Structure formats: structure tokens, C-alpha cells
Simulated scan of single mutants.
Amino acid sequence: MTGPPDSADPVDPIELVDLVDLWVIPTDQPDAVVEALGALLDPGERARAAGPDEATGRRFTVVHGVVRLLVAERLGVHPAELAWRRGPHGKPEPAGEGHTLGVSYSASGALAVLALADGRPVGADVEEVRDPRVAARIANRYFPGAEAASLAESSSPEVLAERFTELWCRREACVKAFGGRLVQGFGLPLAGPAPLVLTGAGALGDGPCRIADAPVPGPFRAAVAAVGDRPFRLRLQCWEAPSFIMSRT
């Protein structure tokens, strides 16, 4: 006699979960590291890095240089040869055929994150915790009414700022996963414990979309979103300058 359908042999749940690599990148690096990473940038990136604010330019160089290193390693190409194509609203993806690597990166002050996912679009965002007064104004203007009201009931300004930043990161990550515009994500219902599943993403596109919070150090919050129904787990890694760069210091 055969048993009911739910009595089938168990399946390892790990096999049913996608893996998303999330690299945490400290953006304040020694001169030698900044110089080595700067040599990997394309002319447009170098022009942006050479702006009037030196500190901002250094951090830009680190973020884009490390992204080139890690994405190129994943694709098996030289970092300096990596080319990007841009979506309608500027989302970067590696140019070329024959790969299905989803890429998304974000930077805020001294920290950046890079998400890599095989076979599905991904979005990542990191933000330094906002000033409570700024957070309250933005939430009241742009967030769904229930979310704004819940934030207003926070036990302290510090808690309000942390919860707001968490919701903002989720919103940005979802928008980036779909390659849309931020205004399209303001109405998404993103409160509640993570991970979350959106069955539809409104103006951004057809769902579903899965969203997870990511633990990052310091006064920052981060989130990752991936388009599709399959659950995913995050593999967090902290980037450190390779020995070939550090040997130059």
C-alpha cells in the first residue's frame, strides 16, 4: 500500500534554496589598495572618481574596483576587461552572452555591499542609519500609511531611525532587483519580519519577489531582494584586499 503524498521520502531543504553571495566591502582603504583598484576602472569610472571631493572619489574607486574584481572572478574574465550594460533605469549588468549572473551593489559612506546570484535578478542596498527627524519626514511623505503610522509609534527616536532604515533598504533592494525607479517602490508593503515574500511588485513588475535583511557591521542596515519564488539564503563574506595588493603597502 502506498502512503499519502506527504509521506514521500524527505528532500534536503538546502537543495530547494538558491544561494546569494553578499560581499561586505569596507570602502576606506590604504593608498596602495585605492591605487591598484583604480587601475581596473574604465575611463568613465575614472572620470567620476576624479571629482572635487577626494574622499568620495577614493570610496568610489574602492567600490567599483572591488565589484570588478569579484564579478570578473565569477565570470572568468580580467577585471579591466569587464564591460557593463545598463537597464532602462541604469541598473548595471555584466555585458556579454552566455551567463546568467545577477549583480547588484550599493554604497553608503564607509561601507558597500555586492550581491551575486546565479540565474535570477537580484537587488542589494546598504544605508547608514538615518537621522530620526529626516526618517520621520520621508516616511510620512512616501511610505504606505500603515508603515508610517507604525514608525510614528516607535518607542524612541533611535528605534524609529533603525526601523525606517531597514524598510528603506528593503524598498531599494526590491526596486534594484526589478531594475525600476525608486518612486515605483514607495507603495510596496514591506513591514514585518524578514524574509518577506511579495506576490506582486506593483508598478515594478510581476512578482513574486523575496526579500531578506542582511546583517552588516556598524551603524548600517542592508537588505537583499531576488525576483522569483524560490527561497534563497545569504552567504556573507567580508572583502579584504588580496595579498598581491597589500604587498605593495
Score class of each variant (00 low, 15 high):
2 T>G: 14
4 P>E: 07
8 A>Y: 11
8 A>H: 14
10 P>H: 12
10 P>Q: 10
10 P>D: 11
11 V>L: 08
13 P>R: 07
15 E>P: 04
18 D>K: 00
20 V>L: 04
21 D>N: 07
22 L>N: 07
24 V>I: 14
24 V>G: 05
26 P>V: 08
29 Q>V: 12
30 P>V: 01
31 D>S: 12
33 V>E: 00
38 G>Q: 10
39 A>C: 08
42 D>L: 05
44 G>P: 00
44 G>L: 07
45 E>W: 02
46 R>A: 01
47 A>I: 05
47 A>P: 00
48 R>N: 03
50 A>E: 03
52 P>Q: 13
53 D>C: 01
55 A>Y: 03
56 T>K: 01
56 T>D: 11
60 F>E: 02
60 F>R: 10
61 T>D: 00
62 V>K: 08
63 V>D: 03
64 H>G: 01
66 V>E: 00
66 V>I: 07
68 R>L: 06
69 L>I: 10
69 L>P: 03
74 R>T: 12
75 L>H: 06
77 V>W: 09
78 H>C: 14
78 H>Q: 13
81 E>R: 08
84 W>T: 01
91 K>R: 14
93 E>D: 13
95 A>Q: 06
96 G>N: 04
97 E>K: 10
98 G>H: 08
99 H>S: 04
100 T>V: 14
102 G>C: 01
103 V>M: 06
105 Y>W: 13
105 Y>L: 09
108 S>A: 11
109 G>H: 01
110 A>L: 12
111 L>A: 09
113 V>K: 04
114 L>F: 03
115 A>F: 10
120 R>D: 00
121 P>Y: 08
122 V>Y: 03
124 A>Q: 02
127 E>I: 07
127 E>A: 10
127 E>S: 04
128 E>G: 15
130 R>F: 15
130 R>C: 12
131 D>R: 15
133 R>S: 14
134 V>D: 15
134 V>F: 07
135 A>P: 04
137 R>T: 13
138 I>Y: 02
139 A>M: 08
140 N>G: 15
144 P>G: 10
144 P>V: 12
148 A>T: 11
150 S>L: 14
152 A>D: 15
153 E>Y: 05
155 S>W: 11
155 S>G: 15
155 S>I: 13
157 P>H: 11
159 V>G: 02
160 L>A: 01
160 L>N: 00
165 T>A: 06
168 W>Q: 03
168 W>F: 05
174 C>S: 15
177 A>N: 05
177 A>F: 06
179 G>R: 09
180 G>I: 11
181 R>W: 00
193 P>K: 14
193 P>W: 10
194 A>P: 05
196 L>I: 09
199 T>C: 10
201 A>R: 06
202 G>P: 06
203 A>P: 11
203 A>S: 13
209 C>K: 10
209 C>G: 03
211 I>K: 02
212 A>T: 13
213 D>T: 11
214 A>C: 13
216 V>A: 08
218 G>E: 10
221 R>C: 07
223 A>H: 05
224 V>D: 06
225 A>G: 04
230 R>H: 12
232 F>L: 11
233 R>E: 15
234 L>P: 04
234 L>S: 06
235 R>W: 12
238 C>N: 12
240 E>S: 15
245 I>G: 09
246 M>C: 05
246 M>N: 12
246 M>G: 05
